[in-house]
């Protein structure tokens, strides 16, 4: 049994310790917002937060997550989650939508670490996440919008 904390809830899972965290989240725990895209840390669709960092859950063995905080799109706290989701809706970002959980999880780290990201910051954060539908221009706009909303909200 491996003890996990996902979205602030404790789980004990009986899986082989080399099982990627992705499949434990999707199949064992049943949270399917985190997506399988490449299985090789190439596309970012599987991005979750592990102790706050945007790890690629498809190459992260579940044992690495034992005893640490895992957050998925379903549990992204509102402080960053709300402005990001609102901005994504306002800019009508998603097309097929499959990559967007991973995009938002990556963007959340950017907004946590820098209040007003530049276009270069966005490139430096988001280039690991593939969107085959090509929503990149809108993701960029949505991140700027979310950052603006955040600094307005906090008076920064």
């Amino acid at each position: 049994m491996i003890k996990l904390k996902v979205n602030r809830k404790e789980y004990a899972v009986d899986v082989s310790p080399d099982t990627p965290l992705l499949w434990v989240i999707r199949e064992t725990i049943g949270l399917t917002g985190t997506k399988f895209g490449c299985g090789a840390a190439q596309c970012g669709a599987c991005t979750v937060h592990l102790d706050g960092e945007a790890v690629r859950s498809c190459v992260t063995a579940v044992e690495r997550a034992a005893g640490r905080e895992v957050v998925t799109i379903e549990g992204l706290p509102d402080d960053l989650g709300m402005p990001l989701k609102d901005a994504w809706i306002a800019e009508d970002v998603p097309q097929c939508g499959y990559c967007q959980s991973g995009q938002i999880m990556a963007a959340a780290v950017l907004l946590r670490e820098t209040t007003r990201p530049t276009d270069e910051d966005i490139d430096d954060c988001m280039t690991g996440n593939i969107c085959r539908c090509g929503t990149y221009p809108r993701i960029r706009r949505a991140i700027h919008r979310a950052a603006a909303a955040l600094s307005k909200g906090t008076g920064k």
Binding site: E53, R56, M126
Partner: peptide
């Protein structure tokens, strides 16, 4: 390196592209 990975402040990458987000303690098989 692909994915526009950069050095970052302390050499461990930037934002969502920190080294250990993909690179584990040991090699991923394959």
């Amino acid at each position: 390196h692909g994915q526009n990975v950069k050095r970052g402040k302390d050499g461990t990458g930037k934002y969502a592209l920190k080294c250990s987000n993909c690179h584990q303690d040991k090699h991923v098989a394959g």
